[in-house]
């Protein structure tokens, strides 16, 4: 299966794992990576910079209608939901928060699932609410690959456990194994 897009969702306790994943991907890693992470709503600056410190791939907070390119990671901006349009560009929205979150993982995952179908890998990490569970179910329904971080390893298990109860998860992996899996993607 040739996967072409990766989406990662996380909340409380996921920052270090995301940083580790980004720092372990080689410069040559060319699949676009979408990051939908719960974040402080009114802090606009600093998150991209913090994630970028050790990352080999360029991380950006996309503008609305920004085209999606290889070799880049796209972080959902504060206080916006992030969608993926047919035509391969990003669409932002200021709709109501979902699961008390904007950006909401459910919205980004469901939109990526619909747009990228079986070309998508969705990875859900540590978090303290159930955001992402319905999104994961949608990824599964559209033929994408679902991965959750091993709940025993998560600082907060609610998010991954909710996803596991909402749908059948393809792989339950430790952070190390997630990295190994991504690095070895052909």
């Amino acid at each position: 299966m040739a996967y072409k897009y990766i989406i990662i969702g996380g909340s409380a306790g996921s920052f270090q794992t995301v940083t580790r994943i980004l720092s372990s991907l080689p410069k040559s890693f060319n699949l676009p990576v979408f990051l939908c992470l719960h974040r402080l709503k009114h802090v606009r600056a600093g998150f991209v910079e913090a994630l970028s410190i050790k990352s080999n791939i360029k991380i950006i907070e996309p503008d609305d209608k920004e085209f999606i390119r290889q070799h880049k990671a796209y972080l959902a901006p504060a206080n916006y939901h992030m969608y993926f349009e047919l035509g391969n560009y990003i669409a932002l929205s200021t709709e109501e928060p979902v699961n008390h979150s904007r950006p909401a993982i459910d919205i980004s995952f469901a939109s990526a699932a619909y747009t990228y179908r079986d070309k998508l890998i969705a990875i859900l990490l540590s978090g303290a609410n159930k955001d992402g569970a319905l999104g994961m179910r949608e990824v599964k329904r559209q033929g994408g690959l679902t991965i959750v971080q091993d709940p025993d390893e998560c600082q907060v298990k609610t998010m991954t456990a909710s996803a596991m109860s909402a749908t059948e998860i393809d792989k339950i992996l430790s952070a190390d194994k997630i990295i190994e899996f991504l690095v070895n993607l052909k």
């Binding site: 939901h81 969608y83 993926f84 349009e85 047919l86 669409a91 929205s93 709709e95 919205i107 469901a110 939109s111 619909y114 747009t115």
Partner: peptide
Amino acid sequence: YALSSLKRR
């Protein structure tokens, strides 16, 4: 309109 978010609404 941007169809992805419209579809959801």
